[in-house]
Design a protein around this nucleic acid. Structure first.
Length: 573
DNA sequence: CAGCGCTACCACACCCC
DNA sequence: GGTGTGGTAGCG
C-alpha cells in the first residue's frame, strides 16, 4: 500500500512539473455545482481551536475530526466537514463514474481517513459511550464478551434507577478492535430521545455507577475483595468522585473506621435504603505489570476527547473498529441511507438527533453542584432545563437583554427555563417592567419574555395577577434572523437530503458534484486561518483554485486534469 | 513551524507533633 | 510524616 502511494506520488510530481512548464490558461468557467446542492466543506487545520472557530462561523452542520498523520508521536491535524461528506470519502467502496483526477483526490482523502477520530466537543450534547480494554495475556481467564454483557446490564439498570431511562443490549452499538494481545471494545449507547449534556457528565455518570468497583482495585491484597464489599455502599452513591481521589479517600475512610466524612455519612444513609452493592468484581482486570485496573477506561471523558471512528485504526496498527460478533444493535432500515452509513452515523458519539422530546441528562460531581447554585442550570424531572442569569443560548440572552435595556432602564435576566416539547425559552426579567397590556411599567410585578424557537418569534407576558387572570400575551414579534435557531432544524433536513444524494442507491453515473469539486480546492487550503502574513501562499492557492475549476470540475466536459502541485504539496505535509 | 487535555508522579516547601 | 504546590513526562 505504502509503495503504491509512493509510485502515485511520483506520478503526480511529474505531472506537476509539466504544469509548471505549460501553465493552465486562466479562462473563467463557472463551477458546475448547482446552487440547491449542499455546499462542499472540507477544511484542514493544524490547530483544534482554529477548526472549532471555523465550525462556529459555518452555517452548515459541520463537525471536527482529528486525523493521525505521522507514525510515532501521534501528531494530528483537524478536518472540518459534514458527516455526509466524510462518509462519502470514508466508505471503502469506490464510487463509479469518477474521472482520473477525481479518483486521485478520492484516494488521497480516503488514505488520510484511515486513522480518523471524532472530536467530541466540550459542552456538546452526546451519547453515553464506553472504551473497554484488557490485556488478554495478563487475564487468561477473563471472558470479554461476558464482561461486556454484564457491564451493559449494570449500565441499563443504572439508567433506569437514576433517570428512568429504559434500554437494553439492543440499544448498544458494540464495536470491536481486539488483537491477539488485547481485548478492546467501544460501546455507544443509542438511547431513544435521551442524551447527556456533554461527555464530562457522561464521565461523572460512569464513575458514579462504577464506584462499587473502585473499592475492589483500591485494596492491595487480592483476598480483601469480599470483605470490602460488605460496607453497605449504595448502588449509585450520591457523590461521584474522581477515580484518583476516590482511592485515597476510600482507603483512608476505611482506615479511620469510616465515619467522619460527609461522603461516608451519605453512603451510610443511602446504603441503608438500598440493597447491598452489585457485584462488579467482573470489571477488575490486571495490566501487564500485574496491577489491578478497571475493564472500563475512565480516561475518555475529557474535553474535546478524540474517539476513534468506526472502521478506523490507530496509526501504525492494522486493527480497525468493526462491528463486534456479539453486537445486538441494528439500525432502522432506510431507503435513502445505506446500512453501513447508518452504522457509521450511530457510532458517532456527538451525533445526537434533535427531537421535540429529547431529554438531556446531567450528572454533576459534588464540587460542581456547589458551583451550580451560582451559575445554575438544572434539569427538572421532565427533562426541561432552567437556570439563572444566562441560558445555554448566549445569542438569545443578548437579544432578550437588548429588549429590556431601553430608555435608560437596565433590565436583566433573573431566571430562565427551557421547555423541550415546546422549544420555548421563558425569561423572567428583573428591573424592567414595561407591560404591553397596560402600556406602562408595572409597579410591583415583573414581566417575562418568551422566546418561541419553533415559530421563531418572541412575546411578552407578566406576573401581574390582573394580566395573568386575562391570560395576557403580547403580539408575537419575529426573532432577528441571526439568532433564529430554526436553521438548526432545517439543517437536519438538509443533512437528510444530502444523505439521499450521496447514498449508494444514487445513480452510479453521477458523482456527487459539489463534494469533489470544492473539496479539491479546500484540500490545498490548509486553512491559514487569519494569518495575513501568508498572502503569498494565499495567492498561490487562488491560482490553484482557479486551476481546479478548469480541471477538476470538468467531469462532464471530460478535459479535466488535476491541479497536481496542490496535491503533491498536501501529500508531502 | 504546527495536537490536546489531562493525570500521575516527583521535588520541594511548609507545618505540626 | 503529613499536606499543599508547582512543574512535567507521558498516557489516552
Amino acid at each position: 500500500m505504502e509503495r503504491k502511494w509512493e509510485a502515485k506520488l511520483k506520478q503526480i510530481e511529474e505531472r506537476a512539473s509539466r504544469y509548471e512548464r505549460k501553465p493552465l490558461s486562466s479562462v473563467y468557467r463557472p463551477r458546475l455545482s448547482k446552487p440547491e446542492e449542499p455546499p462542499s466543506i472540507w477544511k484542514l487545520f493544524h490547530r483544534q481551536t482554529q477548526a472549532f472557530n471555523f465550525v462556529k462561523s459555518c452555517k452548515e452542520d459541520v463537525h471536527v475530526f482529528a486525523l493521525e498523520y505521522k507514525v510515532g508521536d501521534g501528531q494530528r491535524i483537524y478536518l472540518v466537514t459534514t458527516y455526509a461528506q466524510l462518509w462519502f470519502y470514508y466508505k471503502s467502496r469506490m464510487p463509479s463514474g469518477l474521472h482520473l483526477a477525481q479518483i486521485i483526490i478520492y484516494l488521497w482523502k480516503q488514505k488520510n481517513l484511515l486513522h480518523c477520530y471524532e472530536v467530541i466537543p466540550e459542552n456538546a450534547v452526546c451519547k453515553l459511550y464506553f472504551d473497554l480494554e484488557f490485556n488478554k495475556l495478563a487475564n487468561p481467564e477473563a471472558d470479554g464478551k461476558k464482561m461486556v454483557a454484564l457491564l451493559i446490564e449494570h449500565v441499563c439498570k443504572a439508567l433506569q434507577e437514576l433517570y428512568r431511562v429504559n434500554c437494553s443490549a439492543e440499544d448498544v452499538f458494540n464495536l470491536d478492535s481486539s488483537t491477539d494481545e488485547k481485548f478492546s471494545r467501544h460501546l455507544i449507547f443509542q438511547l431513544h430521545d435521551v442524551a447527556f449534556k456533554d461527555n464530562v457528565h457522561v464521565g461523572n455518570f460512569v464513575r458514579k455507577i462504577l464506584q462499587p468497583a473502585f473499592h475492589l482495585i483500591a485494596s492491595e491484597d487480592d483476598d480483601s475483595i469480599s470483605e470490602s464489599m460488605g460496607h453497605g455502599f449504595s448502588h449509585f452513591p450520591e457523590t461521584p468522585v474522581k477515580q484518583g481521589i476516590s482511592f485515597s479517600k476510600m482507603s483512608s475512610d476505611r482506615d479511620r473506621g469510616e465515619s467522619q466524612t460527609q461522603n461516608s455519612k451519605e453512603r451510610g444513609r443511602l446504603g441503608s435504603a438500598e440493597q447491598s452493592s452489585p457485584d462488579l468484581s467482573f470489571l477488575v482486570v490486571k495490566n501487564n505489570t500485574g496491577e489491578k485496573h478497571l475493564f472500563v477506561d475512565l480516561g475518555v471523558y475529557t474535553r474535546n476527547r478524540n474517539f476513534r471512528l468506526y472502521k478506523s485504526s490507530k496509526i501504525g496498527k492494522q486493527v480497525a473498529l468493526e462491528i463486534a460478533e456479539d453486537n445486538r444493535f441494528f439500525p432502522k432500515q432506510s431507503k435513502t441511507i445505506s446500512e453501513e452509513n447508518q452504522y457509521f452515523l450511530s457510532s458517532l458519539v456527538s451525533n445526537v438527533r434533535f427531537s421535540d422530546t429529547l431529554r438531556i441528562l446531567t450528572c454533576d460531581t459534588s464540587q460542581n453542584k456547589q458551583k451550580r447554585v451560582e451559575y445554575s442550570h438544572s434539569t427538572n424531572t421532565k427533562g426541561n432545563i432552567e437556570g439563572f442569569h444566562c441560558s445555554p443560548y448566549p445569542e438569545i440572552d443578548q437579544f432578550v437583554l437588548s429588549l429590556v435595556n431601553k430608555n435608560g432602564i437596565k433590565g436583566g435576566i433573573r431566571h430562565w427555563s427551557y421547555f423541550f416539547p415546546e422549544e420555548l425559552l421563558v425569561y423572567d426579567i428583573c428591573k424592567y417592567r414595561w407591560c404591553e397590556n397596560i402600556g406602562r411599567a408595572h409597579k410591583s410585578n415583573n414581566i417575562m419574555i418568551l422566546v418561541d424557537l419553533k415559530n421563531e418569534v418572541w412575546y411578552q407576558k407578566c406576573h401581574d395577577p390582573v394580566c395573568k387572570a386575562e391570560n395576557f400575551k403580547s403580539d408575537c414579534f419575529p426573532l432577528p434572523a441571526e439568532i433564529s435557531l430554526l436553521f438548526l432544524f432545517k439543517e437536519e433536513e438538509e443533512f437528510t437530503a444530502a444523505e439521499t444524494m450521496n447514498s449508494d442507491t444514487k445513480s452510479p453515473h453521477k458523482p456527487p458534484s459539489g463534494l469533489l469539486s470544492e473539496g479539491a480546492i479546500s484540500d490545498a487550503d490548509w486553512d491559514n486561518g487569519l494569518d495575513e502574513t501568508d498572502f503569498v501562499e494565499a495567492a498561490e492557492d487562488a491560482e490553484l483554485a482557479a486551476a481546479a475549476e478548469h480541471g477538476l470540475l470538468g467531469y462532464c466536459s471530460g478535459e479535466g486534469e488535476i491541479p497536481d502541485e496542490l496535491i503533491v504539496q498536501v501529500l508531502q505535509e
